[in-house]
């Protein structure tokens, strides 16, 4: 169904992080941007559609005014709002927002962290809570919001102006009890959907939200003590990938499970949906990428999922997988220790 194309080389290898690939299509310029995180660096590649031109850029995790530091990046993702596109980086120290080409940092939000113990003699155990501190999980929601998850379980809601750097933290959602892993906004473009954001955490709990001046919790789907590492929302339906290798499909608003798939033999790292076709992509540590077809007919109250395709990326624990277009004609994959982005296109 798909065949392998020429890979895109990147400047440094991909780290094993959930959803470690972001793709942005710039249709007017016939370009696709890719980002892959390597420790404290983000590799950016812009690739022309004719496959002839590639340009590379690397972003360091600069922490505000602090000089180059070793802070590790957890995720990099493009956020597409109607008025603008931003590249959002989350790290151990905070959240950075760049213009989509990575040229200018427009906003920096420091996480409220206790001072890391570096001085000999400081009583570390009392000054330093055991929990790791980082931000992870990024989503653009509706007209003007970018949401980012934090290891405490909080979700930070930023209000983004149509231009300029006057970005404001407008709300903090305190519903999750464990570290946020991923989040996704409704991607079908349908205005009928009530829910427009789903968030996931380490315990597998999912929260379904309605955005607005104040975000409203529509439903909380309890976890089953298995981490949910990647989540998508399409036509009011949640697709969630778990550490157990399962994919579950839920009705977002009611929380009813509509399908349960024993999809992978190891931890799932990434899911993606092609909104125009309903193709669902899953990728895991078992070196497999799989393509599924999700059919949601709200009028008939019907949800179906069908297996279409498997691809084995030999000896690679896959950490990122994304469709490159809305139909799902092509997808791209990255894996731990791999210095390339592998692309597959429909035959």
């Amino acid at each position: 169904m798909y065949h392998k194309e020429k890979s895109i080389q990147i400047k440094s290898s991909a780290s094993a992080l959930y959803n470690n690939l972001s793709v942005l299509r710039i249709a007017p310029r016939c370009l696709t941007y890719f980002t892959v995180v390597h420790a404290n660096v983000v590799n950016m590649v812009s690739a022309s559609w004719d496959g002839l031109n590639f340009s590379h850029r690397q972003l360091q995790s600069k922490e505000g005014s602090i000089a180059a530091s070793s802070s590790l990046i957890m995720q990099a993702s493009w956020c597409v709002l109607p008025s603008r596109e931003l590249l959002v980086l989350t790290s151990q120290k905070g959240i950075q927002m760049y213009e989509s080409d990575g040229s200018i940092m427009v906003y920096w939000h420091a996480l409220d962290t206790p001072e890391t113990p570096t001085v000999v003699g400081v009583n570390i155990s009392s000054a330093h809570p055991a929990q790791a501190v980082f931000a992870r999980g990024i989503a653009a929601v509706q007209e003007n919001f970018i949401c980012v998850g934090v290891s405490t379980g909080f979700i930070l809601v930023f209000d983004i102006p149509s231009k300029g750097s006057n970005i404001m933290l407008s709300e903090v959602l305190e519903e999750h009890r464990e570290s946020i892993t991923d989040m996704a906004s409704e991607c079908s473009g349908s205005l009928e959907s009530v829910a427009d954001l789903v968030t996931a955490d380490d315990s597998g709990a999912l929260c379904v939200w309605k955005s607005g001046e104040d975000f409203q919790l529509l439903n909380k789907i309890p976890g089953f003590e298995v981490c949910c590492s990647s989540v998508k929302l399409w036509k009011g339906t949640v697709a969630a990938g778990y550490g157990s290798g399962q994919i579950r499909i839920y009705e977002a608003v009611t929380g009813i499970v509509r399908a349960e798939v024993n999809a992978h033999a190891r931890w799932i790292y990434s899911l993606d949906i092609a909104p125009f076709s309903g193709l669902l992509l899953s990728a895991a540590e078992d070196s497999l990428v799989q393509v599924w077809h999700l059919t949601v007919i709200p009028e008939a109250n019907s949800v179906e999922i069908q297996h279409l395709y498997s691809e084995c990326v030999t000896d690679t624990q896959i950490c990122g997988a994304k469709f490159c277009d809305g139909e799902g004609h092509a997808f791209a994959v990255t894996g731990y220790d791999l210095s390339e982005i592998i692309r597959y296109t429909q035959e």
Partner: peptide, 12 residues
């Protein structure tokens, strides 16, 4: 983890 290969669907 379950052996991969099974899809179960549920009614509303």
């Amino acid at each position: 983890t379950q052996i991969p290969g099974l899809i179960r669907t549920f009614s509303c």
